[in-house]
């Protein structure tokens, strides 16, 4: 199984940006842990980050027919991007939305997610460990066998 992990804007600053909210692990640290967990199940992870909405849309489009599952932390685009919503709707594989903090418990402008109605599952507020837990959950799905 191929799992694509997509990270949106500002997540390249992870580890330095507001560590009291997002923790001190860097995105590279998390990508290593995700790959190791997937490999333990015989699966592979492609871990990406972009600050550009169109790039993320293209990654989702390219995943159609070639990737079995997407984990997406669209970060700020979660709350604004109809384009990412539409791309996810077009992607027929398994889709999981992830957030390090819990957007519903933060500022009101983060309470609406255009991603949530377009995905199968949502994980939020469980810190950076959530990435590894999400990989584990996807590897444990019936389709992962």
């Amino acid at each position: 199984m191929r799992i694509l992990v997509i990270n949106g804007p500002n997540l390249n600053l992870l580890g330095t940006r507001e560590p009291e909210i997002y923790g001190s692990d860097t995105l590279e640290d998390i990508s290593v842990r995700c790959r190791q967990r997937a490999e333990a199940h015989g699966h592979e992870v492609d871990f990406k980050q972009s600050n550009h909405e169109g790039v993320i849309v293209e990654w989702i489009q390219q995943a159609i027919g070639s990737v079995d599952a997407i984990v997406i932390n669209a970060a700020a685009y979660t709350h604004t991007s109809v384009a990412i919503h539409d791309a996810l709707r077009a992607y027929e594989g398994y889709k999981l939305e992830l957030h390090i903090s819990n957007p519903h418990l933060r500022e009101p402008f983060r309470h609406v997610s255009y991603v949530s109605p377009a995905v199968d599952a949502v994980v939020a507020g469980l810190g950076v460990d959530a990435y590894v837990h999400a990989i584990e959950a996807i590897c444990s799905l019936p389709m992962g066998e």
């Binding site: 819990n102 519903h104 199968d120 939020a124 469980l126 959530a130 837990h133 584990e136 444990s140």
Partner: peptide, 20 residues
Amino acid sequence: GSAGFVCGLGVGSYLLAVAA
């Protein structure tokens, strides 16, 4: 603000929450 949230994974929602 520290509360977690998991939905859509069936029994996996619970197992992910327990692991976290």
